[in-house]
Design a binder for these strands. Structure first.
Lengths: 204, 204, 204, 204
DNA sequence: AATGAATGAGCCTTCATTCAT
DNA sequence: CATGAATGAAGGCTCATTCAT
């Protein structure tokens, strides 16, 4: 029927979507979520404004897709780590370091807040974001649990510890906003140590 | 006419300003910073829109004043604590608890991010916010230092520890956004313990 | 409190609203409902676009207000006629003539259709329009009933006759669209005669 | 290549055009003329948007073609009736009944109004629509004339009566908009009676 | 000081139409 | 012919800010 390659089109379409999401993230990271408008996203993506709407239904749709993608990727990463045969502290260290190293990550945190906060956002989106956040807590709690069994992570409810760890990472991420200098270095090592069981207090 | 009236007027004016700031905070806490507009703030304050502009130059002016006031109050509070004759852990505990308990606090954190982030915001405001944030780190670091001397707080750069502590508190605060349920309880005790030196690892 | 005259303001506000409705009707009558946009209405009213929104919540709000006002005025007029001590045929004649003579009336009919038809219009508005239309049928039916009792109006269900009469008037009104010449004159006399009982077929 | 193929192609093209017009009418009848867009028409027709433009030059082109086709079919029908050997009242009755029974007919009336009304529509199209409307009045007037000669239709200018009859039908059709309930039944018999000469007033 | 009507820039979104493939 | 991605011009609506009263 079609004189064009349907499969290729489909692939192109998916690539384009991803590209728009990338650009949206860039714009948010650059300008903040308040100032990030569709026009700028389109420009960043090298598309016309109208064309963006061929790939997404609305601005909120774009934002929630960015958030969803980020949350899913993040969750997958943590889950992968949970399965590894490693010292839990090393896992935390690695997670911490790679998170801090990615400059766009703070945009996710900002978006998470904005989507929660903005009353005009579809409540379902807000719930979905919360659901994913909560779900992502689970593999992190599993890592804590592993560490506790090995006696290298402090005692306490693993889920609560996971929650604190994630909140700390998020809190730190926010401090890393572009153009905002903090006179304190962030060291994964020190962060992990807060959650580590000291050598001499371990059960024999 | 009389000097007393001038003084009284000045006082009234200051009271009004404070009232507007209170209401602005309320609105932000209720609607989120994106949806908080001047009209709503004026309505909450029982004033006309135009009249609000008799007390503040712009919306940004209001927001930055809210933030500034919050940061200053917060800084004063921490400084006061630093001077007390108390176990550092109790100080942290009290700071933590009172922060979490105040539902509007998350609005400050949101605002901090928004003001940092928003390109359109006067760069001087952004720098001022950062400056105050950094300044507020100092008394917190002092508390850490006190705790370390008493052997009840973990070792490490006090300022860095203070930074982590504040970031953790901020991160947790964000999770407390209104209408957003997190299936984990926040306990000041557990938080403080992360920064505490375990009994049996203390130097004699 | 206010340095301005509140009552006068309220009156001004109501006058303004009416003025906007008048202008909206003019624009619709001139350009058709499809082409009638808020900008044009504002221009016709000598206001800025934004200011129109100080008086109405939305374009649909304006349109439905225009319609409502027209329907209410029309209903009132028919009801007044129903109470008069006149030959029913004269009543119909007068209603017919005055309706046809008002050039904007066709806009109401167009609007009625558009509001019914347009899926994006609030269903409640649509129902309200229908409700008023149906309600307005009643006094017209009463006139028919009076005429039948006097033996000057054709027999049949008065409400149905009213419905036909109104539909005929509406149908004719539509033909009177501006810039649309129909080579047939519209005579109230002839129209009324269609609904009249012929002399020699009346019951003695 | 062969002339037969060219003919066949031509036929196929014509069939396609007709199909598109059918679908356009369906969409208009379903969504109203304001919401009827090219994309929906294409989807209804099972074609791509671009392909529709291989058969019509513009959206207005489609709409005016729909209208034209409808008007021509309608005119042909009335003309056919005018030639029949039947009581004029039966002709009116049949015309009335078949018109009311076809649910899409109201779309024509709506379109007629929209095309007349819409400033942006090519004036030639508007004139063409008016011309056809006027032309279609002629066979209807002929039926009236026949009825008057047989003494079964009320006296008066036949063309004017035709105009009233058509306007009444159109007015009633508009009341039949989808999703719009009118608490009055429409009976062809009663309608025709309005235009009928009563038994006992006929000339011997 | 107090009011809120008025302004106008800017944002999101839609859609007829074009065009490379 | 067939496709649907791409364009860009409007249109509806919001809102910070101003200003006459």
């Amino acid at each position: 029927m079609s004189p064009r390659n349907v499969e290729k089109d489909q692939l192109l379409r998916e690539t384009r979507r991803e590209h728009i999401l990338d650009c949206a993230l860039q714009v948010i990271a650059k300008q903040g979520i308040d100032s990030a408008n569709v026009k700028d996203i389109a420009k960043e993506a090298g598309l016309s404004v109208g064309n963006v709407y061929n790939y997404f239904n609305s601005k909120d749709d774009i934002f929630s897709a960015v958030l969803q993608r980020g949350q899913i990727n993040y969750g997958r990463k943590i889950s992968d780590h949970a399965l590894l045969e490693l010292d839990a502290r090393d896992k935390l260290h690695e997670i911490c370091e790679s998170w801090i190293a990615t400059p766009e990550n703070w945009a996710f945190t900002i978006m998470l807040q904005s989507i929660r906060t903005n009353e005009t956002v579809n409540p379902e989106l807000r719930e979905a974001a919360t659901r994913r956040f909560t779900a992502n807590l689970e593999p992190m709690a599993e890592i804590m649990r592993q560490g506790q069994e090995a006696g290298v992570i402090v005692e306490g409810d693993p889920k609560q510890l996971a929650f604190y760890f994630v909140s700390l990472i998020q809190g730190l991420t926010l401090q890393l906003a572009p153009g905002y200098e903090i006179p304190v270095s962030i060291q994964a090592k020190t962060i992990v140590r807060l959650f580590s069981q000291p050598e001499n207090s371990r059960k024999k």
